[in-house]
Nucleic acid binder design. Structure first.
Lengths: 149, 149
DNA sequence: GCCCTATCATTTGAACTTCAAACATTCGAG
DNA sequence: CTCGAATGTTTGAAGTTCAAATGATAGGGC
């Protein structure tokens, strides 16, 4: 691999990994007794549209089994971040709803992401930003086509 | 966040996690009884320069505590992928050396990364690749300056 | 209405990863 | 030589995840 290729590899592999750590460090004071994993579960709960906040849908969004999510949500419920509600129309379904502490955490979490994106857009010259976006689109599409196959 | 910003966020956050899954799926048949975590430990062991293969240095590279690495290396040693050698010059130090099975795994692992980079370079038009590389450099530098602060 | 299957969720036991703290050994400066 | 620093190991606990077993409900076909 040449220099540019090593750069691409490093970004693809390490940057994203390290961003998670930076995120954790940045949010440390805001998330209290939550792990980053729990923060991202809260993110999914807050972001879910009406009727899309069932265990099965959330688990698919988060790419874990429903069993794993049950364990996680049980903890978050105990900690007072979410509540569960049996669906009235289909009593097999469980809807997960955020409580105020979850909304508060998600506010900080969203703010971090906004700052992160701002960091990119402010770092790359405007005339080059279009090319970057286009490239990222292409890369994103490529890998997601791969994954589906 | 507008459309482009959402794209940046998505790439920065999700692509990494998904790449790790794609990597795992791709290498599945090659890595036998190893987890991806173990593959990346083997990568660090194989990539370490002479005298940089001690527990402390490897742990720093992998961003885990030395205690964690001890546990992991112990397993890899039992599985026959690495061996440990006490340093002669400094008997506190332990050098970790790859055995043939580790070299074999690392070969497949490196090949995957090469294909991944190839995917990017072949997806993005040549004239736009320069801009992409330059942008990635800027982004990379930005976040790593952040982290040190 | 009654079965049978599919769907949705929970529980449980096991595996993996990680860390902090306690401990042991060795080195090196004074 | 002595003592603090550096290097690793061990251990116990916590977090995450999954597969498999289980329970409950829904819905179609009879």
């Amino acid at each position: 691999m040449n220099h540019s290729e090593i750069m691409i590899d490093r970004v693809l592999v390490h940057l994203f990994n390290d961003l998670l750590r930076i995120e954790e460090k940045t949010l440390q004071k805001k998330i209290g007794d939550l792990s980053m994993r729990e923060v991202h579960i809260i993110e999914a709960v807050c972001a879910s549209q009406k009727e899309d906040n069932t265990m099965t849908v959330l688990a698919a969004t988060l790419r874990v089994t429903v069993g794993s999510l049950t364990v996680a949500i049980k903890t978050l419920e105990r900690k007072g971040y979410v509540i569960r509600q049996r669906s009235q129309s289909d009593k097999r379904r469980v809807h997960v709803l955020p409580l105020p502490p979850a909304l508060e955490v998600e506010k900080h979490h969203r703010a971090f992401h906004a700052r992160m994106v701002e960091a990119v857009t402010s770092t790359v010259p405007p005339q080059e930003l279009d090319v970057l976006i286009k490239s990222l689109h292409a890369i994103y599409d490529y890998f997601y086509d791969q994954e589906e196959a």
